[in-house]
Nucleic acid binder design. Structure first.
Lengths: 347, 347
DNA sequence: TATTAGCACTCAAAGAGTGAGAGTGCTAAA
DNA sequence: TTTAGCACTCTCACTCTTTGAGTGCTAATA
């Protein structure tokens, strides 16, 4: 596999990404930066096709990269230009500063990606999993009606209403809050288990049977935090891509997505997976994701889904920058929160 | 306009809804329940076309109802069968019981409608507007970090994090919570105004300047409640309707929708509006909505958007039943909450 | 007078044939 | 090893034709 062939492959990908039309040998030679005749290019392209990097929609059409071709291009051939300061500033602005709650940070990043790339953004909600419970409050709000508030160290707040059989006295509520705090404060969300809650239900019921629905509600809230899911934002952008099957797209964005292996992968750089490889159910698409980290640990993933014919050169630097920036911001936030935990303002 | 013509119109609508193809005179006569020859039907259909109830896609095709035709059909000709007990039970189950929070009730109704009708559901979020503020809490959760919790009488809970310049002492927090409670408890969400908050900011700042961001956050939360919007759920269902323009649909479901005149209309039964009449921007579509009430007052709307060729006979009873049930459930909830407000469990 | 049968007419959709154009693969020469 | 040349293939856009459904009109009928 000589260097010229690689350059031809790169040129085919670039041209195809630019125009969306199958590219022929003549088109490549006209580009000027490969100084051999179209016939030579033709021969090389035939070889590239045999090797599985290119394919022809039909005999007399130009060539289109296969996903193997894209893969080689992305891993070896492409040189992505660095973002300009202007672009970085724009991203910083869209993302929000260090005091942005983490969930919002991710949401903003997704919004930025959909706007810039005109593709769908994918994000995982796995951050809360790596946080600890910093507060559980039970607030009476009506007859036999209580709101449970669960706050974690990463700043996410969940609430849920809970109706009891009887009203609680001040003392009962105090007992309960105290008990819960003792058992849950500082516990990592990841470590929460059903058994743990079962024990708590038992303990609490011994004191007063009608408290157990509260524990159950807290459990349900905590499940929200533990629940891992990949969410797709701006999926409608994919509908204007005519290389994607509309039905597949609609089905895909309507589904709930369990975190796939892709996003669980230990490798931490940019990852590109193709629908064609069987990773997910949109035939002609590719998913470009990268992980962000928090306090030295993987915390979640972020990226886009678009057509396979997507401007990798342009998009990858954006995703890289965003995940780096998010990692940085989250680790900063983290410090604040750790400090805060050592000095609770209210005893 | 004799009775036979009306029956023919009804038959055309029914057939067109069933098959999706323009319906010809022969097809009608074959149905059997209009006992004249196709030639007679042909003549009548020509009259119906002149009157604007039917139209021909092209000369040698059958006829299709115009929106004027649909209107007449819906208002005068259609006889919608009542729901079976089985169907009612299914809806009840999907909706949830009397202790379901109102927002969830609406969400469930929307989900039920999309599932049953395979159309997009539309709902308004206007319920919270008609509720009063029942509780505002400020909860310290970290260094200079506070969570504000806003609870309304209809059971909706909003929270927001707020970072201050300094930490608050116990007394300061008490002062603030007390002050806010005095000023906001029992105030109708509709009556909240920016001026009100401006005054509160002024008063609070006099005590301690750094409290004002808290007031501001509460204001932002209250805006969430007051903000009226029509939301579309399951919009992707419309993409599989080939009579709708995909671009229009995508645009429509991507937009934020201010509450339209349709939903503000004083009339309280089922309402059907057509995109073709200029009410909203999906050409060949119709919106079927009905209002639900709470404690005797209109509280919001609920319905579907689908192709004009939609099974009105089937869908309208569903929407009617849901809005009635929701009105009933909300009024029941309301009683509980009013009772609860007169006897706060925690002093 | 209202209804019906019959027939010519219209039009869209589907199919068949055609030419242009783009691109290829192969061969032979440089 | 590269290139020029050429025959070949296949799609796309276009046109022409056929088919069939459905109409409108007219004249006969109840």
């Amino acid at each position: 596999m000589d260097e010229r062939k690689l350059r031809i492959l790169a040129a085919v990908v670039d041209e195809y990404v630019r125009t969306g039309e199958p590219v022929g040998s003549k088109a490549i030679s006209k580009l000027g930066h490969i100084k051999v005749s179209s016939a030579t290019i033709r021969n090389d392209m035939a070889v590239l096709e045999q090797l599985g990097y290119l394919e022809q929609p039909h005999t007399s059409a130009g060539r289109v990269p296969t996903f193997k071709g894209y893969r080689l291009y992305i891993d070896e051939l492409m040189t992505a230009p660095a973002l300009s300061d202007e672009e970085k500033n724009k991203l910083d602005e869209m993302l929000g500063g260090a005091d942005t709650p983490e969930e919002l940070l991710i949401e903003n990043a997704a919004a930025a990606l959909t706007e810039i790339t005109q593709c769908a953004a994918v994000v995982t909600n796995s951050v809360p999993r790596f946080s600890v419970i910093s507060k559980v409050e039970v607030i009476p709000t009506g007859k036999r009606l209580y709101v449970i508030l669960l706050i974690t160290s990463n700043g996410s707040i969940k609430n849920k209403a809970c109706r009891l059989e009887f009203d609680l006295s001040h003392e009962q509520l105090d007992f309960f809050t105290h008990y819960i705090d003792e058992n849950l404060h500082g516990v990592s969300v990841e470590d929460l288990s059903e058994e743990m809650f079962d024990k708590m239900v038992a303990a609490v019921s011994a004191y007063m049977i009608s408290l157990s629905p509260l524990v159950k509600s807290i459990y349900e809230l905590s499940e929200d935090l533990r629940h891992q899911e990949m969410t797709v934002k701006g999926g409608e952008k994919l509908l204007s891509c005519d290389e994607l099957d509309k039905m597949e797209v609609v089905k895909f964005i309507g589904q709930k997505h369990e975190i796939t292996d892709i996003l669980e992968d230990t490798f931490s750089g940019i990852q590109v997976k193709f629908g064609a490889e069987g990773n997910f159910a949109i035939g002609n698409s590719s998913m470009i994701v990268s992980k962000y980290r928090k306090g030295g640990k993987d915390a979640g993933s972020l990226g886009i889904i678009g057509p396979m014919r997507v401007d990798y050169k342009k998009i990858i630097p954006y995703i890289e920058y965003l995940t780096q920036k998010i990692s940085y911001l989250m680790s900063e936030n983290d410090e604040n929160i750790i400090m805060a935990e050592n000095s609770e303002p209210k005893p």
